[in-house]
Design a protein around this nucleic acid. Structure first.
Lengths: 165, 165, 165, 165
DNA sequence: TTTT
DNA sequence: TTTT
């Protein structure tokens, strides 16, 4: 009926951009969202929440987000399940994002080969259920150099069937 | 930093009320949240999202919610993990609710031995991070008749350490 | 940057469907959202929040919502301002909805000339920023009988410029 | 029933901290929330949304927020009304915040006499409906030096009756 | 393992 | 398996 999530946290790693066999871009990353128990516990705690973005938004996230960056994510909870290689059903809970805001970078000098984006002019990164468009299987600027299905031993367990729209 | 979820859906079963060894009430149930892909897919799809409530809110949910009922849940995503009996780390994602609204009943004649609540006068069911009060380890009206730790083969994998406040 | 609102409440009146000069459907209604101060105050209090929906969603709301009905509304806060007839600037705050869920009816026998919708089969009512389509200026079933610009003394203070997409 | 708002935007001015006659802290500020119409409109547009915080959270906001800063605000919409000096009823819509997150500062060199807070160690700023505590009418550290009711020609139109808890 |  |  209604399923809405809003998170603010930091990426635990660089995002991973892949493509489905049909050429649809998918980016996955994990957001570390600090809990806020009035600071009274000694250890800092966080929830590590897996985020999935599709299509245009996937490519924008892959281009602009990096490990440690602060981001706001809006989306919905999705629970999918599959049978693993031992014949057991595994449940995976993810947030399918339809809106991602790039907040300021984690560290001004995190630079290195970082891109030269200015966040005053950061692109609007919003997709989602009403996404209508464009070049879904277009050869993205990323598609040539890195084969999204080659960089990982595990079989990709996301398919077009998981497309939320 | 910020972690907020709002869901509307129906309970797949009656809620399960238990108590931690310290006598803190915990209620768990699963919410079936229909996806809304413009109705164009033949099969109706839903996400089945596990909800956890604590203390006063747990008892109110156990008293007022039943299988099939429509409810709105507000809370936050929590990811916990534990080692299972095969030594493997298992990740569990749940929504820790701090506000539950009982929307109208699923079925006017679902009656039977159902309680006689009138939803016009349904209790306000809100708890959460600021909850300060009351009889947490009081013998609840449910505690005598059913031992929350006896009705289940599996060891309970929730403890006071999971208390969100 | 990010602007999200979720409300559950009841309509204070039947919704009002109008059309802009360009033929775009707009529906306005007010949602009474009960506050929940632990029920300790004697008088029941509520916030009365103006909702605006556009296009397809506007027509669905006009068809399915009625005074007293419970609804969930998802959208964003918009603050517009205009100069009134005394030359004073007036600020208007509204929620522009992109998703409306029809929860159960307020009263099973509120019937009368009410439409015969069954909420098990209630239409999915979601529009919003990605809405791309359809018969926007199609002669709606409501357009013949009531002129949306004639039933009100005040000049309509909404125009296509207010279109959120 | 349910009333939840989440916003990310920048303060249009420094926040204003005042005290009710009973000594309860109230801070008001306006958040400029950029709209995101795919960047296709030439002029940048924003909604200017009034925020109100109470008690501890009010004091934290007054101490840590400044004009131009980026903040995330979680709360609920409140519509109050009063009769103005011309005997006309005026409606005021505000977001009553119960959680405010200080995102990175607007400008590293916006410094000036700005406080020396480090945002790595920024205080957790969350209050709200469950707030149970403490020194509500205590003479706050701010109360001596500036009379919150003297710095403004207009009568203060907020009172303890507006207290959301 | 799922609700209407 | 985690971020600041």
């Amino acid at each position: 009926m209604l399923n809405r999530v809003i998170l603010i946290g930091r990426l635990t790693k660089d995002p991973e951009l892949r493509y489905t066999p049909q050429g649809v871009a998918v980016t996955q990353f994990t957001l570390a969202v600090d809990r806020s128990f009035s600071g009274n516990r000694e250890e800092r705690e966080a929830d590590f929440i897996p985020i999935v973005t599709w299509r245009q938004l996937a490519e924008t996230c892959a281009n602009y987000l990096r490990k440690g960056r602060l981001a706001a994510v809006e989306g919905r909870i999705q629970v999918r399940n599959y049978e693993n290689n031992e014949g057991r059903r595994v449940y995976v809970t993810e947030v399918i994002a339809d809106n991602v805001r790039f907040l300021e970078s984690a560290n001004r000098e995190s630079g290195g080969q970082a891109r030269d984006e200015s966040f005053g002019g950061a692109p609007s990164a919003s997709g989602g259920s009403g996404y209508s468009g464009g070049n879904r299987s277009s050869g993205s600027r990323n598609s040539g150099s890195n084969d999204p299905f080659a960089d990982d031993g595990r079989p990709i367990d996301i398919s077009d069937d998981d497309l939320p729209f």
